[in-house]
């Protein structure tokens, strides 16, 4: 019974999550790009000349059929990694992505070592 319920839920959720992947969300891309001439604002939040230009170009790129990741790649090609709010997963950034999880696992072991060995 429980298994069935889980399966049902899984199908339910996955249907939704797949539906979301198909369209490229322009606003989401704007939110993930930094407005280089502003103080800590994203392209979406800013109305500067620079932000407006980037919005136009993002729209063009979407119309060309580029995916979200391709657009980020294009932007960091032109403006450096600084423009993308989500750091890429590469050798340079590997510590950034992995270290929190290492800390989590390490902390888990630490707590485990405090526990009584026999229950």
């Amino acid at each position: 019974m429980k298994l069935n319920l889980f399966l049902l839920l899984f199908i339910f959720f996955s249907k939704f999550s797949f539906a979301a992947e198909k369209t490229v969300d322009q606003n989401l891309i704007h939110k993930n790009l930094r407005c280089l001439v502003c103080q800590g604002q994203s392209i979406s939040d800013s109305n500067s000349d620079f932000a407006q230009t980037i919005k136009l170009v993002v729209k063009d790129l979407i119309d060309e059929g580029k995916t979200e990741d391709e657009i980020y790649e294009f932007m960091s090609d032109k403006y450096g990694d600084w423009i993308v709010f989500k750091p890429q997963f590469n050798t340079q950034n590997s510590l950034l992505w992995i270290l929190p999880y290492i800390a989590l696992i390490f902390g888990g072991f630490f707590i485990f070592s405090f526990l009584k060995k026999r229950q």
Partner: peptide, 13 residues
């Protein structure tokens, strides 16, 4: 006119 070309050259200001 609309600044699109500037992006190709990484112009931000």
């Amino acid at each position: 006119k609309n600044g699109k070309h500037s992006v190709k050259f990484g112009i931000y200001g």
